[in-house]
Write a protein that binds this DNA or RNA. Structure first.
Lengths: 98, 98
DNA sequence: ATTATTTATAGTAATATTGCTATATATCTA
DNA sequence: TAGATATATAGCAATATTACTATAAATAAT
C-alpha cells in the first residue's frame, strides 16, 4: 500500500531506515557531496550544479533537513545550507567509501 | 513524476543512492540485522521474526538481492540467504553504528 | 501418488515519491 | 516604493513503493 507498518519495527530500525532512505536518491547524494566539498551552499548553488528545477532541489533539501543530515540558516534573502556537523565525519565515510 | 532523471547523475552517485535506498526500509534493516546475527536464514525464518506476509518478505529479499547486499542459494525446497561476504564488514558498521 | 512445505509471482489497491509550473513570501537593490 | 533575487509552497501528473490475497512451482515427506 506504499505505507509502511511502522509499529512493527523498533524505533532504532525505523530511524536507521529513515536515515538511509534520505540518502537513497542521486540528487540528494549530489547535494551532500557538494556540501562536503564546499562546506556551505545556498539553494541557488545547487540549482546551478544539478539539473533539476529549483523547487525540486528545494524539496530534496527539505528532506535532507528533516532527516537531520543538513542544517539551513536564513541569511538575508537566501538560506545557507551545511552538513549537520554532528554527522559530517560519518557522511564523508558513507559517501566516499567504496 | 516519481521517476528519477538518471542521466543527470554520475554512475557513482546513482549506485550509491541505490545502495542506500535498499537500506531505506525498516523491514530490510530488520532482515539485514537478522542475517548479521544468524549468518544464514531461509525465507521462512524472516517471516517468523518480522510481522509481514510471506510474499512481502520475499519481495524485500529480492530488493536486497538486486542491490547486491545479500545472496540467495537454493537448498532443496528452501532458499538460504546470507549477507554478501564482500559487504559484511561494511554493513555491520552501517547497521551497528550510531 | 498425494499431500505438505517453502518460496516466488501475479494481480490489486493504497500511499509515497519525484518533478514540473505557477505562485507566494521575504529580502535586497536601485 | 518598485523591481530584482532567492526560496518555499501549492497543485498537479506520472511513476514507484508497500502490502495484501490468491496462486503457481518446486521439493520433501507420507
Amino acid at each position: 500500500m506504499g505505507v509502511t507498518k511502522e509499529d512493527t519495527y523498533t524505533p532504532r530500525q525505523s530511524k536507521l531506515a529513515q536515515w538511509y532512505k534520505a540518502l537513497g536518491h542521486p540528487a540528494r547524494i549530489a547535494i551532500v557531496e557538494q556540501l562536503l566539498r564546499s562546506n556551505c551552499c545556498i539553494c541557488k548553488d545547487f540549482t546551478s550544479e544539478i539539473d533539476l528545477a529549483q523547487p525540486t532541489i528545494s524539496r530534496h533539501l527539505q528532506e535532507l533537513k528533516s532527516a537531520g543530515i543538513i542544517c539551513g540558516t536564513i541569511e538575508g534573502a537566501s538560506v545557507s545550507y551545511c552538513i549537520n556537523p554532528r554527522y559530517r565525519k560519518r557522511l564523508r565515510e558513507l559517501i566516499t567509501e567504496n
